[in-house]
Simulated scan of single mutants.
Amino acid sequence: MPERDAEDRSEEGSVGLPDLGDSIDALTFEQILEMDDEEDEREFSKSIVFGFFEQAEQTFEKMDNALKEKDLAELSSLGHFLKGSSATLGLTKVKDSCEKIQHYGQKRDEAGTAEMPDEDECLKKIEETLVSVKEEYAEVEKVLRRFYAA
């Protein structure tokens, strides 16, 4: 029975979000939605989310170019940048992958705790992670576009 009480409490104050899947932290995203003046229009949050889509697409393009140039510092910087904006929206999987790219760009392991002096290995890991993060991004983009179309 205590489980049920916790479940009821967690829904208090909720704006009635649809299931956003496990790639989006509902509590974080809800904080963005609470800034909307009108729940029906959602102009403020929609502008932030669609601005993020544009930003992410541009950043992925820059990452692809930096990967071709083997520019680890730029890849780390771009990973850091996209990590921050995805965290703001609660896009947890995208954020986590961007953090890995940031660490690999600094010649560290995915957690950022151990050195990885082999630049080619770091570039390979970034390339693999970039494939994953683009898939994760496509998933959340689809969910959020559906949310705003409703």
Rank of each mutant, 00 (worst) to 15 (best):
F44Y: 12
E38W: 05
V143Q: 06
E139Y: 13
C98P: 07
E41M: 11
F50A: 02
A111S: 15
I24F: 09
I126Q: 03
L144T: 07
I32P: 02
A87H: 10
G105W: 07
M63D: 01
D40I: 06
E74V: 13
Y104A: 00
R4P: 02
E121V: 11
A73H: 09
A111L: 13
F81G: 05
H80F: 13
V133R: 01
S23M: 12
E34I: 09
E11D: 13
T129Q: 12
K70H: 05
E136C: 00
K68Y: 00
E127H: 12
D5W: 11
E141W: 09
D71F: 04
M35S: 11
E110K: 13
L91Y: 11
L78W: 07
E136H: 08
F44I: 10
K100D: 06
F50Q: 13
D109L: 01
M63V: 04
S85D: 10
N65Q: 14
E12N: 10
E110Y: 11
Q102L: 03
Q102S: 07
D36Y: 06
D25W: 01
C122N: 05
K83L: 09
E43M: 05
L89D: 00
V94H: 02
Q102I: 01
E41N: 08
E11V: 08
P117N: 04
E119H: 03
A114Q: 15
E110M: 10
D22G: 10
C98R: 03
Y137E: 05
L144F: 08
I101C: 05
V143E: 04
P18S: 07
S45H: 04
L82H: 10
M1F: 12
Q31R: 15
Y137P: 07
K83C: 05
S45Q: 01
K95W: 08
T129G: 02
E61V: 06
I126P: 01
E74H: 06
G84T: 10
E41Y: 11
I101T: 04
I48L: 12
D120A: 14
D71I: 06
L67Q: 04
E12Q: 14
A26I: 02
D96G: 07
R145D: 03
M63L: 05
E127G: 08
F52M: 01
R145T: 10
A26R: 14
E7I: 08
A56N: 11
R42W: 00
D5H: 10
F53W: 11
A66N: 02
E30W: 07
E38A: 05
E38G: 07
S47V: 01
I48A: 02
A56I: 05
S10V: 09
E11F: 14
S77K: 15
A87V: 04
L20F: 09
L144V: 09
F52D: 01
G105H: 07
V140Y: 12
A149K: 11
E127V: 01
R145A: 05
A138Q: 12
S14Q: 10
D118Q: 03
A26V: 14
A87S: 13
Y137M: 04
E34R: 15
L91P: 00
L67M: 06
E7P: 02
A66M: 02
A138G: 08
R146D: 13
L82W: 10
E139D: 14
E74K: 15
M35R: 14
I101S: 08
G90Y: 00
K107P: 00
V15T: 11
A149M: 02
